[in-house]
Structures are given as structure tokens and as C-alpha cells.
């Protein structure tokens, strides 16, 4: 295990250090101290590292992550794991707005609550939230799974494409073109796998599934007057 002190070397110092580790290195486990809410910590990591960040982080932590397992031992600011490609970003506390925005792959676990626009424009990531998510979550979500163990705020899944949304609690209301869908065996199995990976002890049967009605995919000539 190696320690990096953000107060001493700054965000650029930390990130440069992480980029310079060769892919075949045995120096895999890195602990970052004194994050002080700074932005873009462990952003753009491209290798199978284990990174523990000991405190609250600012915006875009773990953004563009590839392969690394990043654990935030605190709360995360706006856009945690934004555009993640693979690997894991695990938030022990809560996450601010736009968690997992546009992320292509990997797993984002938020043990607490996530704020508004969680999973906005997600493109294949799996997101598991232990608590609730705020308004406009999964807005324009394209692919991947968003699992919410608590409640979902207003306009869940507005203008959603092919992402799957699972909510255990109450969805205040659904956004445009988002509907409740039948929970089939394949969905229960997928959900069980995701809950297991996120170490959440809920029964898949307790969740409801939401997805796209696919009514916005094509122009509807009956609505021409509205334009």
C-alpha cells in the first residue's frame, strides 16, 4: 500500500503519479489522504489499481475511469464517475448531482443517496444507489442499469432510451416516455446479480422496473400541430 497526500502534492501531482504506474506494476494499492473536496481526483485512471480516497471529494472524482477500483470514504461532489468506461467507483457516503453521467461501463455504487440527474445520459454503466435519487434521474439514459433501493424523485427516466431502471421505493412521477414495465425472470436475475455486486441485501422481487415506451423514437405526425 502506498500513500499520497493531496495537501502536499495537489490534484495534478496525485493524478500524474497514478498515470505513471506501469500496467504490470505490483504497486496496485494507493491511498489518497486529505482530498479536501478538490475536483477531478483520480480522474482518467487507466489501469487495474485499487484506490482508496480517505474523505469527501469534489466534482468529477473517478471520471473516465478504466479498470481501477476507486473507493471514496466520504461523500462525492457533482459528476462522480462521469464517463466511466470500466472498473468500479464506490461511494461510501452520498453523491451530488449527475452521478455516473454519460458513463459507458463499469459499476458505480453509492451507499447513501444520490442527488438530482443521477445517471443522466448513461450509456452502459451499472449504477446501484443504496438510498434515494433526486429529480430527473436517468434523463435521456441510453443503456445500462440504474438500481435505486430507496425512492426516485420527480421525472424519473425522462426521454429515456434503452436503459433499465429498477426502483424499490416510490417513484414520485415518471418523465416523458418513461413507463413501468413487466419484471420478467431475466430482469430478476440481472437485478439479483447487481444487488449482489453492490452488497445490498434486498430481494429483487421488491423492485419495480421502468423503461422506455419508445414513443419518442419517431416523429408522430399527429403531433405536427404542436410545432
Amino acid at each position: 500500500m502506498h500513500e499520497l497526500d493531496l495537501k502536499a502534492i495537489g490534484v495534478t501531482g496525485i493524478n500524474q503519479k497514478l498515470y505513471n504506474i506501469p500496467k504490470d506494476s505490483n504497486e496496485r494499492h494507493w491511498v489518497i489522504r486529505n482530498p479536501m473536496g478538490q475536483h477531478a481526483i483520480a480522474c482518467g485512471v487507466d489501469g487495474p489499481l485499487m484506490i482508496d480516497i480517505m474523505g469527501h471529494v469534489g466534482f468529477y472524482c473517478g471520471g473516465m475511469n478504466k479498470e481501477a477500483e476507486i473507493t471514496i470514504h466520504g461523500h462525492a461532489g457533482v459528476g462522480v464517475a462521469e464517463n466511466m468506461m470500466s472498473g468500479v467507483v464506490w461511494v461510501k457516503g452520498n453523491a451530488s448531482e449527475s452521478a455516473g453521467a454519460t458513463a459507458n461501463g463499469g459499476l458505480l455504487v453509492i451507499e447513501g443517496d444520490a442527488s438530482s440527474r443521477c445517471g443522466i445520459s448513461m450509456k452502459g454503466v451499472d449504477i446501484v444507489v443504496g438510498g434515494s435519487v433526486g429529480h430527473m434521474s436517468a434523463f435521456m439514459a441510453q443503456r445500462g442499469n440504474l438500481v435505486v433501493c430507496g425512492d426516485a424523485g420527480e421525472a424519473l427516466g425522462d426521454s429515456i432510451y434503452e436503459a433499465r431502471l429498477y426502483v424499490r421505493g416510490r417513484a414520485v412521477n415518471l418523465g416523458s416516455d418513461c413507463i413501468e414495465k413487466e419484471m420478467r425472470q431475466e430482469h430478476l436475475e440481472d437485478l439479483a446479480r447487481l444487488l449482489d455486486r453492490a452488497r445490498m441485501k434486498h430481494r429483487p422481487e421488491a423492485f419495480r422496473r421502468y423503461g422506455s415506451a419508445r414513443k419518442l423514437y419517431n416523429f408522430n405526425v399527429d403531433h405536427a400541430d404542436a410545432y
Binding site: M36, G37, G58, H75, G77, S96, E97, M136
Partner: peptide
């Protein structure tokens, strides 16, 4: 009502703080 301008609050026994970003309160 859309709340896209960031805001975070924190409270201890000694103070209450509000800031656009957490890093301001972290001090």
C-alpha cells in the same frame, strides 16, 4: 425548482456553513 446551480450545506455543534462547493467548507 430545477436546482442546477450547486449548493451544499454543513452543520456541526459550532457552526452552520453553506457554499457552492464543498471544498470551501472543507477548510
Amino acid at each position: 425548482p430545477i436546482a442546477c446551480k450547486h449548493a451544499v450545506m454543513a452543520e456541526t455543534d459550532d457552526w452552520v456553513a453553506m457554499a457552492t462547493e464543498w471544498r470551501a467548507i472543507a477548510h
